[in-house]
């Protein structure tokens, strides 16, 4: 796997931060494209683990992913610059809008453009879910966990953090019950520091 320099991460996350509309979840397809598919900084297994871990910290999920991935790929400087990259475009655009709010309110072009972006973002996230699903849902246990987590999140509105903790605990218990069946299949662990 290639290793980016902290400044590479700043550049990448600035681009990701500048072009994702509709909140942090909308950034995930772009992050996967840039970091996994194009630059091979990490694999889908490690990326999908980071997504779930980001739910364990409070605050915007995109910022947490940036810190987790930035540190993993390029240490503390990587973490700081990745977070900066995610936050700065949002800060600049909103500062501009807030400063010109009276003029901005009369405009409809942003709402029109976003009405077009929204259905595309649904498709983007769905594609990312399918591509990551191919990497993550490799056996019957994973599918069962996926089904259980989906039901918990969608039907019972269980808090994401609780779902994450339950899944981690279940997986550790499973390791203890059948230590031979859980050898490393994905390569996500191999390059973890």
């Amino acid at each position: 796997m290639d290793r980016p320099r902290p400044l590479d991460l700043l550049r990448l996350f600035l681009r990701i931060g500048a072009f994702t509309f509709g909140g942090g979840m909308a950034m995930i397809p772009l992050m996967r494209q840039e970091l996994v598919a194009e630059r091979h900084f990490l694999d889908d297994e490690a990326f999908v683990e980071t997504l779930a871990l980001a739910q364990c910290a409070p605050g915007p999920i995109a910022g947490n992913i940036a810190v987790l991935l930035g540190y993993r790929l390029a240490g503390w400087a990587g973490a700081a610059l990745s977070l900066l990259g995610v936050a700065v475009p949002a800060f600049v655009v909103i500062t501009f809008i807030a400063a010109n709010y009276a003029a901005w309110r009369g405009q409809t072009w942003a709402a029109q453009a976003f009405a077009g972006v929204r259905p595309a973002v649904v498709v983007l996230i769905a594609f990312a879910a399918v591509r990551l699903g191919r990497a993550a849902l490799t056996d019957r246990y994973a599918w069962a966990a996926f089904a259980a987590a989906s039901v918990a999140l969608l039907l019972f509105r269980v808090h994401p953090l609780a779902v994450v903790l339950a899944a981690a605990a279940a997986s550790v218990v499973r390791l203890r019950l059948q230590p031979t069946s859980s050898g490393p299949e994905g390569s996500g662990e191999a390059e973890r520091q």
Binding site: A52, P184, G186, G188
Partner: peptide, 26 residues
């Protein structure tokens, strides 16, 4: 390592749930 691998399906479920949430707003 086991705990992290256990998180993979959850992340997929989260993405699925996010897809549905945004879909409802379209």
């Amino acid at each position: 390592i086991a705990a992290l691998r256990g998180l993979r399906p959850v992340a997929c479920a989260m993405l699925g749930a996010a897809t549905l949430t945004i879909f409802r707003a379209v």
